[in-house]
Simulated scan of single mutants.
Amino acid sequence: MMDQINTLDVNALIALKRAAHENTPESIKATAKQFEALFLQMVLKSMRETVPKDGMLDSESTKFYEGLGDQQLAAVLAQRGGVGLAASIERQLLQQAGLPPADAKPVTGSSLKSLLPSGVMPAAPATPQVSPKVSAAINAPASDAQRFVENLWPQATEAARTLNVPAHFLVGQAALETGWGKSELRTADGRPTYNLFNIKAGKGWTGATVDSATTEYENGVAQTRVERFRAYGSYAEAFQDYARLVQQSPRYAAAQGQGDAAAFAKALQAGGYATDPAYADKLTKVINGNTLRQGLVASAR
């Protein structure tokens, strides 16, 4: 019915919208592919925003046509297998509609890997066993992830541009540090600190602070103690301070410009961002996890 989607064809999109209200296997497959196309388009846009735009040929016109090209590229990739998101959505929609599962084999996203960096949302593997706390960060409700992404995406994009990394890396780290915002540091009277990255207040910090209990690891052994953390006036300030910290500290030089989630996480841990010996592994799982992926897709609708 809609084997080929042209993002510039209004009639095709109207037909897709009409089909979304049908509960047939064909309409569900087409709808799932379009959702994945929207997600891929958002990833491409995020990647372009990390590239400096100061060349002689850069203008609003070139941005416009690049955007159109990315739209069509995302649609084509989704039609040819994508990153596996469409297949997952299709299975869920078929189950909700009481229809038998599709017979198609799971896709691997190999077509996307030939065009995008390895760190940009590959097909999600099965989530291994992790601790309850990290499991909650990885498998939070999609609605929580959607609200978190929508609230932070503009600020994350700006900070990511400074560090030349994908914006969803920073959203994922903020999600891990705060449990999708539910464990964000607060003052004694309950006011928010907006400290999304749990950055401590060292001797050089002259701004507001808040004391809070935290878990630190010494020689691999977890210990609870009270530390002093920075407090900000907004999420924008938090992202700006995080970007400044990573950009200006030689310890985190290897994290800048990273397009691979695991390499980004390992660079932060190697620089001493956290004392948890499993921090890089946990951060990678959140960045590449289904919860963040679903939140990005939902917020792009």
Rank of each mutant, 00 (worst) to 15 (best):
residue 283 L to G: 00
residue 268 L to C: 05
residue 258 Q to C: 12
residue 274 A to P: 03
residue 273 Y to R: 07
residue 279 Y to P: 01
residue 265 A to D: 01
residue 286 V to K: 01
residue 269 Q to G: 08
residue 286 V to W: 02
residue 279 Y to S: 04
residue 276 D to F: 04
residue 268 L to T: 00
residue 266 K to F: 05
residue 270 A to L: 07
residue 272 G to E: 14
residue 266 K to I: 06
residue 291 T to A: 12
residue 267 A to W: 05
residue 258 Q to P: 06
residue 283 L to C: 06
residue 257 G to Y: 05
residue 275 T to V: 11
residue 260 D to E: 13
residue 261 A to M: 06
residue 278 A to F: 08
residue 277 P to V: 09
residue 258 Q to E: 13
residue 282 K to G: 04
residue 268 L to P: 00
residue 268 L to F: 02
residue 263 A to L: 11
residue 283 L to I: 03
residue 276 D to S: 13
residue 286 V to C: 06
residue 286 V to G: 02
residue 271 G to M: 06
residue 290 N to E: 15
residue 280 A to I: 06
residue 268 L to N: 01
residue 287 I to F: 00
residue 264 F to W: 11
residue 279 Y to C: 04
residue 286 V to A: 04
residue 275 T to P: 07
residue 270 A to D: 14
residue 278 A to H: 10
residue 270 A to H: 05
residue 289 G to H: 01
residue 261 A to Y: 02
residue 263 A to R: 12
residue 269 Q to F: 07
residue 283 L to T: 01
residue 286 V to P: 01
residue 280 A to T: 03
residue 274 A to N: 07
residue 287 I to Q: 00
residue 277 P to D: 10
residue 263 A to Q: 15
residue 284 T to E: 11
residue 280 A to R: 03
residue 282 K to I: 04
residue 265 A to I: 04
residue 290 N to S: 15
residue 257 G to L: 08
residue 258 Q to S: 14
residue 281 D to V: 09
residue 275 T to N: 08
